[in-house]
Design a protein around this nucleic acid. Structure first.
Length: 418
RNA sequence: GUGGGCGUAGCUCAGUUGGCAGAGCACUAGGUUGUGGUCCUGGUGGUCGCGGGUUCGACCCCCGUCGCUCACCCCA
C-alpha cells in the first residue's frame, strides 16, 4: 500500500517548519486586520469553470472532477479564490460591510505530472481583500509577503510585478499584440498558435526560445494602460519603493488564470529547479460580479506552502527534535509502576518527560535517554525505592544528586527550572 | 499528455562474463550483574518493484507493466 501518485504524507519530523510558517503568517495577517475563513474542499465544478476560465490549463485538464452519487458534477478545489468569492456572495457580506480581509490555508488539488515542488495535493496560504480599489492594498499585500519571507529568514527571492490592464484598455492592447504577431505567426510554437485565438495574452510568457525571439519589441501591457490603470500601477510601484520592498517590473508576467486585472505578481526562487513561483497573486476586479455578486474590486495572493517549506529546508539545517527535559530510567516492575505516575504528573506540570516500559537493561535505557536528547535522567531502581530517594543525573555534566521521592514534582520544578 | 534518469536491507548505495545476496549507517544484544555519546564483538533485517520470456542456472539478458524522479507544459 502506498499513497496515490502526487500525494504524500508530511511526517512528524518535518512538521515543525509547517507550524512555524503558519504561526508567522497568521499572526502577521491578524495584525493587518485579516480574519480566518474556512471553506469546503469540494465545490460545484461550474464555480471553477466560470471563475478560472474555461480555456485555462487548470480547467481544461488539471481538475479532479467527478459526478457524485446523484450525478452532480463536483470538483476538488484547485485554488481558493473562487470559493472565497462564492462565500462572500453567498453570505451577502457586501451588505453589512463590503470591505473584508480573509486568510486561510488548506490543500488544493491539481492533476498535473508531479515533479520537484509540484504535487497533486499541495497546500496554499491565501489572503484575499474585497471592496477596496485603492492601489495601496496592492502594495500592502506585496509588502506583507515581503515581510513574511523576511521573518522566516528567506533570502534569494525576487518579486516580479506587472499590470495586466482592465476591460477598458485590454481590447486595444490585444489588437496591438495581434497586429505585431501577425507578421511572425510562422515562428510561434504550436501552443502559441492556438493561443492567438483563445488567449493572446498568454503568448507573452511562453518560454519557447523562438517565441521569445518573436516577442522582441512586442507591445507590453504596461505601455497600453488606460489612465486609471496607469495611475494605479504607478502608486503600487512608488509605494513599494518607499517601503524598501525590492521588486522588478516583468512585462512578460501574465499568469494562467483568466480573472486577473491590473496588478499581478509572483515571488520567485531559483532553488526549486523549474518550479520558481513560491507565491503569486493579483487583482481580480471583475470576478465577484461575474459570479453573480455586486461589482466589487478584489485582490489576493496564494503562497505555495510546500514550496516555501522546501526552500526553508534547503536554507537551514533542519533542527533536531526538541530535547526532553527528563527521562525516567525505571528498573523493575515496582519502579516502572511508580515511574508511570511520576511521568504523567511531570507532563502535566509542563515538563517534556519520557520513559520506556519495555523492560530493558539500564544500559539500553540510558542509550534511549541519550537518543531522545534528554537533559536529565531520573534513575529509579530497587535500591532507590528502598531508600525513598532517586538519582537525578545531568546528562551534560554527568553530575548526580539524590532527591527525595516525597514531593517529587515540586522538587524537580525548582531544580530543573532555574 | 511528451521525453530523460532510476527501482537491490529501515536509509545511502556496491554487485565483475549469467554461477551461494553484499557494505556503510541505523536498529538490537553483549563487552561493563545498575549509568548514555567514543571504542570492540555478535545478531536481526531481502518478493533484488511486479509479471512473463530466454537459460542447466537471471539482481544481471529480452518483452511488458507499475512506481519514483527530473524536465517540457502550466502554476503555488
Amino acid at each position: 500500500m502506498q499513497t496515490i501518485r502526487g500525494f504524500r504524507d508530511i511526517l512528524p519530523e518535518h512538521i515543525s517548519l509547517w507550524q512555524r510558517v503558519e504561526q508567522e503568517a497568521f499572526s502577521l495577517f491578524e495584525s493587518f486586520g485579516f480574519k480566518e475563513i474556512r471553506i469546503p474542499v469540494l465545490e460545484k465544478t461550474d464555480l471553477f469553470a466560470r471563475s478560472i476560465g474555461e480555456t485555462t490549463d487548470i480547467v481544461e485538464k488539471e481538475m479532479y472532477t467527478f459526478s457524485d452519487r446523484k450525478g452532480d458534477l463536483v470538483t476538488l478545489r484547485p485554488e481558493a479564490t473562487a470559493s472565497i468569492c462564492r462565500s462572500y456572495i453567498q453570505h451577502k457580506m457586501y451588505a453589512t460591510d463590503p470591505v473584508r480581509k480573509f486568510y486561510m490555508t488548506g490543500p488544493m488539488f491539481r492533476r498535473e505530472r508531479p515533479q520537484k515542488g509540484r504535487y497533486r495535493q499541495f497546500y496554499q496560504i491565501d489572503a484575499e481583500v474585497f471592496g477596496i480599489e485603492s492601489a495601496y492594498i496592492d502594495s500592502e499585500l506585496i509588502f506583507l509577503l515581503n515581510e513574511l519571507f523576511k521573518r522566516l529568514g528567506l533570502t534569494g527571492l525576487t518579486a516580479h510585478i506587472n499590470s495586466l490592464g482592465c476591460p477598458e484598455c485590454r481590447p486595444a492592447f490585444q489588437r496591438a499584440l495581434l497586429d505585431f504577431l501577425g507578421k511572425r505567426k510562422q515562428v510561434l510554437c504550436e501552443n502559441c498558435t492556438r493561443r492567438i485565438q483563445k488567449n493572446p495574452l498568454r503568448i507573452l510568457d511562453c518560454k519557447v526560445d523562438s517565441c521569445q525571439k518573436a516577442l522582441e519589441g512586442a507591445p507590453a501591457t504596461i505601455d497600453h494602460l488606460c489612465q486609471a490603470c496607469d495611475d494605479h500601477f504607478t502608486i503600487v510601484r512608488t509605494t513599494l519603493e518607499r517601503q524598501g520592498v525590492a521588486f522588478m517590473v516583468d512585462k512578460s508576467l501574465v499568469r494562467g488564470l483568466d480573472y486577473y486585472t491590473r496588478t499581478a505578481w509572483e515571488i520567485k526562487t531559483t532553488t526549486l529547479g523549474a518550479q520558481g513561483a513560491v507565491a503569486g497573486g493579483g487583482r481580480y476586479d471583475g470576478l465577484v460580479e461575474e459570479l453573480g455578486g455586486p461589482a466589487t474590486p478584489a485582490i489576493g495572493f496564494a503562497i505555495g506552502f510546500d514550496r516555501l517549506v522546501e526552500v526553508m529546508e534547503q536554507l537551514k539545517k533542519n533542527g533536531q527534535d526538541p530535547p526532553l527535559d527528563l527521562f525516567i530510567v525505571a528498573l523493575g516492575n515496582a519502579a516502572m509502576a511508580k515511574a508511570y505516575h511520576w511521568s504523567c504528573d511531570l507532563n502535566l506540570a509542563g515538563f517534556r518527560t519520557g520513559m520506556d516500559s519495555r523492560g530493558k537493561s539500564m544500559k539500553s535505557l540510558m542509550k534511549r535517554a541519550d537518543k531522545l536528547n534528554a537533559s536529565h535522567v531520573l534513575i529509579a531502581g530497587e535500591n532507590e525505592l528502598k531508600e525513598n530517594q532517586l538519582i537525578l543525573r545531568n546528562m551534560d555534566t554527568k553530575d548526580q544528586t539524590m532527591i527525595a521521592i516525597d514531593n517529587l514534582v515540586p522538587t524537580l520544578m525548582t531544580l530543573l527550572t532555574k
